[in-house]
Amino acid sequence: MAGFNKVVNSYQEALAGLEDNMTLIVGGFGLCGNPENLIKEIKRRGTTGLTVVSNNCGTTEHGLGILLFDKQIKKMVASYVGENDNFESQMMSGELEVELTPQGTLAEKMRAGGAGIPAFYTATGYGTPVAEGKEVREFNGKKYILEESVTGDFALVKAYKADTYGNLVFRKTARNFNPLAATAGKITVVEVEEIVEPGELDPDEIHLSGIYVDRLIKGDFEKIIEQRTVRPSNQSEQGA
């Protein structure tokens, strides 16, 4: 590695320094845009006691869900955790601690964490179980709760394209939590489909600056679809 070049050549190298009991911020919405190969590498390493902050916990067979087979996750912070049998059984048995967090609050926790803001007020969750133990404050006649931001020892991110400096471009709804997660890691590791030379990406089209990225690796992706819904090709045109 020289200068701003963030490229590493193996997944072992990409996750060097990952230890038991660390906190990970992981991008993805369901399996869409999830850093699938980095997750597989965590499984291979056998790291345990992990706290994982991510919108979902994959499915039984894919994404973060595969870390449940060997009980590598100690605590999960997520907004929705369906579609995963191991998750359900480990949550019910108490082996897996779960902190349900509203989706927008989770996104903002990452954004704020990465931006050096320790906490913020939001109306989301006021008067619900989410507000328990949290400070309530009124602004202009409306009640808000204080939510603390999050940062992680590692952030694991999937992007579409990068230059070697780690400037990132995401693709369609695979962007989701990824750029937010990328800002919130002490060490941010990004896997992408394509790496180009600096100068090849139009600076105006870069979604996330390389300043947030520590390691970059090119991977091959399965891109599993959770709910494949299609319409017949011959259906006539109609609006949304």
Binding site: K172, T173, Q227, T229, R231
Partner: peptide, 29 residues
């Protein structure tokens, strides 16, 4: 669609299916 899309269309045809383009229910769109 709160996962990050404004201007969601109908379901794709088999040829249009894109794993990177889903709605909040995780359906291809």
């Amino acid at each position: 669609s709160e996962n990050g899309l404004l201007g969601m269309g109908r379901f794709p045809t088999e040829e249009e299916v894109d794993a990177d383009l889903i709605n909040a229910g995780k359906q291809t769109v």
